[in-house]
Amino acid sequence: MVAVRIIPCLDVRAGRVVKGVKFRDHVDMGDIIERARAYRDQGADELVFYDITASPEQRSVEVEWVERVAAEIDIPFAVAGGIRDVDRARAVLHAGADKISVNSPALKRPQLVRELADTFGSQCVVIGIDSMREVVNGKGCYRLRANTGDPDNMIDPDLDTRAWVEQVQRLGAGEIVLNCMDADGVQDGYDIDQLAEMRTICDVPLIASGGAGAREHFLEVFRRADVDGALAATVFHSGRIPIPALKAWLSANGIETRLQAESTAPVQ
């Protein structure tokens, strides 16, 4: 059986790892390669690098740091930020990224998802979704947000999250990362209700994002929302939740995780 994935997310700004609260007030968390190597050694199953400034400032991620990560790191990683066309996606994939993650540019032009899937295969194409709870006509629902890396230029594309989750799958998305913005950065737990609802309409891998603050939150999201992976930043960057201990504890609680055996310690 395929193991659930524990995925540290490294928000990148100007070649450094940063983290903000509710997408604001970014604090420097260290060098990219240093961080990536440390997470690989701790048993992270995958890494996601979000260039959080790329989309609003109308530029794409630099591929130089992608190449450095690819040369160094022997676990899969995805790159997000400013990938607006097939050429840019190709540059990032050829630099060594395993997947590209697209958010705002796909909202602006949904056909981009199909172009990327047709060119590189669905397995390379991750759709990042920023979603907020809203009340419309007295009824609770989930709605999208775009350009969330820059709060002053955030856009409300006036689109229902459910509809978008269904549409991107039809267009060829190979994985969905659902970032629940109300929960993000406040470490009060993943948005289980929202993730569980999207799970019922999501046939590709679904990754939970936003809200991890304690190991119980991970157990809860795997048990109750049946997600394929859980993404977190602050609790990993700060060292508050060590990944080896988290994975061992999840395993002990019946969630299949990839535990690193002694015999597979790095070969000399």
Binding site: V2, A3, V4, R5, D45, P205, D228, G229, A261, S263
Partner: peptide, 24 residues
């Protein structure tokens, strides 16, 4: 059951092979 099959999985070895050297 999600497709693609994306993530870490284990093997069931059916025969010995030089590729398996040093793996448990």
């Amino acid at each position: 059951l999600r497709l693609p099959h994306m993530g870490w999985n284990r093997l069931a070895w059916k025969a010995d092979d030089p590729l398996a050297r040093g793996l448990d």
